[in-house]
């Protein structure tokens, strides 16, 4: 099913809550703004965030002759989405599965979804280096995968886990497109003083240390978290986040 997909990009991070899903949706939306056809596959089975972030909760996945039909964000069908969130009947119910069941689900997501002709498939992953990641990596062996975008926040606590993810990529032979530092600084709306809540520069120094390219840093901007399905580059074109997303996407396209 992935033969008709031109580029596959993984979004990874050893650490949770660093903004993988937010970065994935904004990368996808930025690519759509640039005229590409894009798909997002959410393989975070225990905590799927993509349906909420794109305001697609409550949509259903349909079965067609060719496979599962993903959920499209609008009539133009430029952005297709697949997530376990669409298969649950209640948004509050937990998916309490051990590895083998998760592995089977991820395999199905990779083999049974009919994406059609799309330019980019962005795969959003859960934190860690375990079942979901091993399965994705094993099943992508036969197809061309561009590589992984790694997301971190600047503080040492997060960088420490992300180093492990970089080792995972190196061990399993996944190319690293580059590293993004999210939540870099927060500009106080009252006094415009910029505070580095989660410290600063951790992403850049990790990129240097691990010898991977640094794609850029995204400041903390509460507005971005509230965009819910709208492209940052379109809604807040003047914001530093929009500029960063634009640059990162250009680097990804060039890659």
């Amino acid at each position: 099913m992935l033969e008709s997909v031109k580029h596959i990009i993984l979004v990874l991070s050893g650490k949770g809550g660093v903004g993988k899903s937010t970065v994935s949706t904004q990368l996808a939306l930025t690519l759509v703004e640039k005229g590409y056809k894009v798909g997002i596959l959410d393989v975070d089975l225990c905590g799927p965030s993509i349906p909420y972030l794109l305001q697609l909760e409550g949509n259903d996945v349909h079965q067609a002759d060719e496979g599962w039909v993903p959920v499209y964000t609008d009539q133009t069908q430029n952005l297709a989405v697949m997530s376990i969130g669409f298969l649950l009947n209640n948004r509050n119910s937990a998916v309490v599965w051990r590895g083998p069941k998760k592995t089977a689900m991820v395999k199905q997501f990779l083999s049974d979804v009919c994406w059609g002709e799309i330019d980019y498939l962005i795969i959003d992953t859960p934190p860690g280096t375990s079942d979901e990641h091993i399965t994705v990596m094993e099943n992508l062996k036969g197809v061309k995968c561009d590589g992984a975008v790694i997301v971190t926040t600047p503080q040492e606590m997060s960088v420490e886990d992300v180093r492990k993810e970089i080792t995972f990529c190196k061990k399993t032979g996944i190319a690293i497109i580059g590293l993004i530092e999210n939540m870099s600084g927060f500009v106080c709306p009252h006094c415009t003083e910029c505070t580095n809540i989660f410290s600063q520069g951790g992403g850049k120094s990790l990129a240097d240390l691990a010898g991977v390219s640094y794609l850029g840093s995204l400041p903390i901007d509460p507005r971005v978290g509230e965009l819910l399905g709208k492209a940052c580059v379109k809604e807040l074109p003047e914001s530093p986040s929009a500029k960063a997303f634009g640059q990162i996407v250009d680097l990804i396209i060039k890659n």
Binding site: G14, G99, S130, E160, K164, T167, F168
Partner: peptide
């Protein structure tokens, strides 16, 4: 080393 990744599936964990 801090770079060491634990790439384990469920049963090992």
């Amino acid at each position: 080393s801090p770079d060491d990744a634990i790439i384990w599936r469920g049963p090992k964990k």
